[in-house]
């Protein structure tokens, strides 16, 4: 390909920009590769901090609450939080670039990453919200039940606001993630359209 550059030619401007290529020995490359793996794994730590902070709170509830039902609910929430933390750092963790990525063209690689993110967002009810539901329901029942007078079944309605707030939070989280997943799907469709042209 013959190129004749002019002084304000974007290609010439681009290729002649001052850069200093990094030089790393093979030992440096290997050690940085190992370090980089650790950084990738720790990226979700900040996002799991909220879950980590909640665990001692519910352990305290389990310690001080006397009813077996409320203690079981608190322990179930702790178990759910641990499962969510695990899922966030394994299933939903940012991945390192796969080794075979040189075999994949850019559209295929980008599409695969978008599909992975889309599927995670679509299944958030299963891996993020689902593990917390049994504990929250049991704990709520345990807290509310002693306040229900036997001859006043209408007292159960007093539990309604808390349940509505919890349900609304679940619904909002699912809806928000579905919208994000739909946006990713549109990007995937756009990539498919361009790749098919």
């Amino acid at each position: 390909m013959a190129n004749e550059y002019s002084s304000d030619d974007p290609i010439e401007i681009w290729q002649s920009q001052p850069v200093e290529p990094i030089t790393m020995s093979m030992a440096e490359i290997r050690s940085k590769a190992v370090k980089f793996e650790g950084q990738i794994r720790s990226r979700n730590y900040r996002e799991t901090m909220v879950a980590i902070v909640m665990i001692p709170i519910f352990l305290l509830f389990a310690h001080f609450f006397t009813s077996p039902l409320s203690r079981a609910g608190a322990y179930l929430i702790v178990a759910g939080l641990l499962l969510v933390i695990y899922q966030m750092n394994v299933k939903a963790a940012p991945r390192r670039v796969p080794e075979d990525n040189g075999l994949q063209n850019c559209v295929a690689f980008h599409r695969r990453e978008l599909e992975r993110q889309r599927d995670l967002l679509r299944s958030i009810a299963l891996w993020y919200l689902g593990p917390l539901i049994p504990g929250i329901v049991l704990f709520s029942i345990a807290v509310i039940a002693p306040k229900i007078r036997p001859d006043h079944p209408a007292d159960w309605w007093r539990a309604l606001p808390a349940l509505v707030i919890a349900a609304a939070w679940f619904w909002f989280t699912i809806r928000l993630n579905r919208r994000a997943a739909d946006h990713l799907q549109r990007t995937i469709d756009e990539l498919d359209r361009i790749a098919g042209e």
Partner: peptide, 9 residues
């Protein structure tokens, strides 16, 4: 390919 894929990621 590798460079663009790593940068996109």
């Amino acid at each position: 390919r590798v460079a663009h894929n790593a940068a996109t990621s």
